[in-house]
Design a protein around this nucleic acid. Structure first.
Ligand SMILES: NC(=O)c1ccc[n+]([C@@H]2O[C@H](COP(=O)([O-])OP(=O)(O)OC[C@H]3O[C@@H](n4cnc5c(N)ncnc54)[C@H](O)[C@@H]3O)[C@@H](O)[C@H]2O)c1
Ligand SMILES: NC(=O)c1ccc[n+]([C@@H]2O[C@H](COP(=O)([O-])OP(=O)(O)OC[C@H]3O[C@@H](n4cnc5c(N)ncnc54)[C@H](O)[C@@H]3O)[C@@H](O)[C@H]2O)c1
Lengths: 249, 249
DNA sequence: GCAACTTTGTGCGTGCCTTCACAAGCGACT
DNA sequence: AGTCGCTTGTGAAGGCACGCACAAAGTTGC
């Protein structure tokens, strides 16, 4: 990768988009948020070790992640926060807003619709949908809840690129089909079902019951491991949170 | 792995606990839910191909996952659903209930506290906490909201094993420390911060802004790829429960 | 009882992700 | 100018996960 110091940035971003590991993309988003906080606190630069410790990641992994986006740190100093933030935002597709539609304004949907953390980070919720006649017509945070049957026109009209599904499980597939039929290519699904979609559509699932079950598994594991062998091998891969490499010899 | 057909199940479960890949654990939870649905529909057995199709997983991967828990399918037939469910529940630590405490009963916390999907799957929410005087004392779904300062006694009293944090970001670390100090060893965190915990504590994070940013990345990627090369390689590996891939400590 | 068919369990090659370790680059200090 | 200390960027190695493909094992039909 010999590259001239001149940040031919347009080019760099384009090239990098094709090959960033999914796992790295997830971490880049975390770095970005932490960098925002650091910037607010008045920092101008940050080293990989500091940022790694703050985000609970291995410093080498962090540097490799950043190397994917073609951003240049300054050796001996660290990364210039403002520049890095700009680079990350472009790479993650945040240089223009992504309009989000939320379908299902029940318990969870209400919380999501009222959450400011989405709009604040470049994901304005611009459309709400439900089937319940008591809900259709009310407005939350200034957005009117529309009937599900209006999904195609409204999504097209408002340029929705991301759909969030917070309906009961049995309704999720139907809603998903509607969204996909309206041109939505990215879906975040909270219903505990596996959605069937054409290959060009990206689905991510947030499944809290599964999260709890993974934790429960670790409870069971700790119980048995603790009483069975003395080898308290906490070597579960994944969460190596020991940020500060305390590698005892 | 020659193993006697005698299901020395206690032993099998104990052995398997130590070595199941995290990614597989996440999928096992999904299989379990789907098996529950199949059982309700009256099925008695299911083949790996059927179950794989229903959960959106490669059949070989599914069989390998199931082989970790030492459960025996019947060649030529498939898996007996009831037995498999029992085995999965034991492996995932669901043979006895896991009491859950929820801290932060705001927008999101209300939705979580009122959600029946947790208790219904072996994770009864048995304690609610907040600092807001207007919230402390009210009851949701029959559970009274207590003040955060009561966390230690109440968690001990009710045998809480899992804590969920739905407070604003700045309060999360403090709440986390309280929970850990009360003996909670597993935490599900909804606040957009990286929690610092001792190594024996397991933290999983649900970070919706990150989920959206991953989707936004794919939007950007599709845009560029679509116009640039004709190779519409939508071969992004399985979204799978964020758990495995996302692994953010 | 035997053959044909079905489905499981898994050995193995492949590719991705993580981590270590170190050279190269940059600034500061003398 | 030269040297020293610090930090980045990355080559290489190891480990893990995925998925193919096939043998083993069971069932069904005759
Ligand atoms: N509440 C939680 O904390 C929580 C946690 C995890 C998962 N979930 C999942 O999120 C989903 C929603 O949960 P909830 O608690 O908000 O449920 P809810 O019943 O409170 O809300 C569901 C909403 O979806 C609407 N709806 C039903 N069918 C619809 C359709 N075909 N099209 C559009 N809208 C439709 C209903 O009118 C209702 O407003 C469920 O799948 C649930 O399993 C919820
Ligand atoms: N609402 C959402 O849809 C949503 C989505 C994603 C993430 N989140 C995250 O979840 C968290 C909660 O979100 P929310 O919308 O419910 O916020 P919220 O402000 O509505 O609720 C926060 C609650 O926490 C309580 N609280 C504050 N400090 C506390 C402390 N020290 N101990 C205990 N309780 C305390 C507050 O009294 C309040 O009831 C936030 O971190 C938010 O970023 C929320």
């Amino acid at each position: 990768m010999t590259k001239p110091p001149q940040a031919g940035s347009e080019d760099a971003a384009a090239a990098s988009l094709r090959s960033i590991p999914e796992a790295s993309v997830a971490r880049l988003a975390v770095y970005l948020r932490m960098l925002g906080e650091l910037a607010e606190q008045g920092s101008e630069t940050v080293s990989s070790d500091e940022l790694a410790a703050a985000t609970g990641v291995n410093p080498a992994k962090l540097r490799k992640d950043l190397s994917y986006i073609g951003s240049y740190g300054i050796r001996g100093v660290g990364y210039e926060i403002a520049a890095l933030v700009r680079q990350l935002e472009r790479t993650l597709g945040l240089d223009h807003l992504q309009a989000v539609a939320l379908v299902g304004v029940g318990n969870l949907g209400h919380a999501l619709a009222g959450y400011s953390g989405f709009g604040g980070r470049g994901f304005p919720v611009t459309a709400l949908f439900d089937v319940d006649p008591d809900l259709v017509g009310i407005h939350i945070n200034g957005i009117i809840v529309e009937h599900v049957r209006s999904i195609p026109e409204i999504c097209a009209e408002r340029g929705v690129t991301i759909g969030m599904i917070a309906t009961p499980g049995p309704a999720a597939q139907g809603v998903c089909d509607l969204l996909v039929g309206s041109g939505v290519r990215c879906i975040l699904n909270f219903a505990p079902v596996v959605l069937q979609v054409p290959p060009e559509v990206e689905v991510r699932k947030v499944d809290l019951a599964v999260e709890l079950q993974i934790l429960a598994f670790h409870v069971a594991r700790k119980h048995l491991a603790g009483q069975d062998t003395a080898t308290l091998d906490s070597r579960v891969n994944g969460h190596a949170a020991n940020g500060s490499g305390g590698m005892l010899p």
